[in-house]
Design a protein around this nucleic acid. Structure first.
Length: 290
DNA sequence: GCCCAGGAGTGTG
DNA sequence: CACACTCATGGG
């Protein structure tokens, strides 16, 4: 049965938050709502003024809490934006038009696999790869909606089977991570501060600097993390004249943006993509109508 | 067809 | 430390 509820949450722009590459399983509906699987539920979010309406299937009493945590309702986003704007004039400009962009707090395990898949692929393809895994190894929620596969399930998947999921060279990394990682490991990682977490994540096959930082930021909620991909490289060069190794750029960003560097990174990332394509939505019209 | 993609691993200088 | 090369493949 479907459960509906609502909550106050500001600022929040669903398209900016759910469609910008932090997370890959939400889809826009024709009425501006967004739908995606959260844990074992299929959730539909609709923003109406300051209120966020939540519908979920099969639903349950904890849906509001689930959404609150996912959208980091406890973050004082306006205060974070003010703080960043005070530190840096370019960020201040970058925040304009993105006031509803929030960092999300995704599931640690799902985030790890998602960004391990995200290497050298574009966002539509990343979404497709994840959908394929969910359809094959997840549990069905509704007609065409599946939960993200559990680690325990993925441990029983052979490399041969995984290689037929359209993951390319990433299949063996995913398989190796699933073999190496335990549920206890995941629980231990949750207790670590950013630096130690990062070091541990880097031990996993297929996880390098950028993936580790994405997983730390979006999966483990480390807001000081500042992932640097090709788009961030361009942004840092274009706006700050900075080039060089990952370490050097990350060091610059951390010093420049401080404890909320992750938010700064999202504003820069979104702006750089918009600057390049002039279409800020990462889901093209063709895809939206599929 | 062509180019590029929210990179990582490995080898070399 | 820096760089070069390879890895598979689909979306635009």
């Amino acid at each position: 049965m479907t459960t509906t509820t609502s909550m106050h949450l500001e600022p929040l722009d669903l398209a900016q938050t759910l469609g910008c590459g932090q997370t890959f399983r939400w889809r826009p509906l024709s009425d501006g709502s967004w739908r995606g699987p959260l844990k074992n539920q299929l959730v539909t979010l609709t923003k109406s003024g300051p209120r966020l309406h939540i519908a979920s299937l099969p639903g349950g009493p904890q849906v509001k809490k689930l959404v609150s945590e996912y959208l980091r309702a406890d973050d004082n986003v306006s205060a974070i934006q003010q703080s960043l704007a005070k530190r840096d004039a370019r960020i201040a400009r970058g925040i304009l038009g993105l006031r509803g962009l929030r960092i999300v707090k995704t599931d640690e395990w799902e985030c790890l696999i998602s960004f391990a898949l995200a290497t050298y692929a574009n966002i539509p393809r990343i979404s497709r790869m994840i959908d394929t895994l969910a359809r094959r190894y997840g549990q069905r929620i509704s007609k065409d909606s599946y939960t993200f596969p559990t680690l325990e399930r993925m441990k029983r998947v052979s490399l041969e089977d995984l290689s037929r999921c359209g993951l390319g060279y990433r299949a063996r990394y995913i398989q190796a991570i699933c073999q190496q990682l335990t549920l206890d490991d995941l629980e231990e990682l949750k207790r670590l501060p950013y630096d130690e977490l990062r070091d541990e994540l880097l031990e996993l096959p297929g996880v390098g600097d950028k993936v580790a930082d994405c997983v730390a930021l979006f999966g483990f909620g480390k807001l000081e993390s500042f992932p640097i991909d090709v788009w961030m490289g361009r942004a840092l060069r274009r706006l700050y004249g900075k080039e060089g190794s990952y370490r050097k750029l990350a060091e610059f960003a951390r010093e420049r943006f401080g404890e909320y560097a992750g938010y700064a990174q999202e504003y820069l990332y979104y702006n750089e993509r918009a600057h390049a394509s002039s279409g800020s939505c990462l889901f093209s019209e063709e895809r939206r109508n599929r």
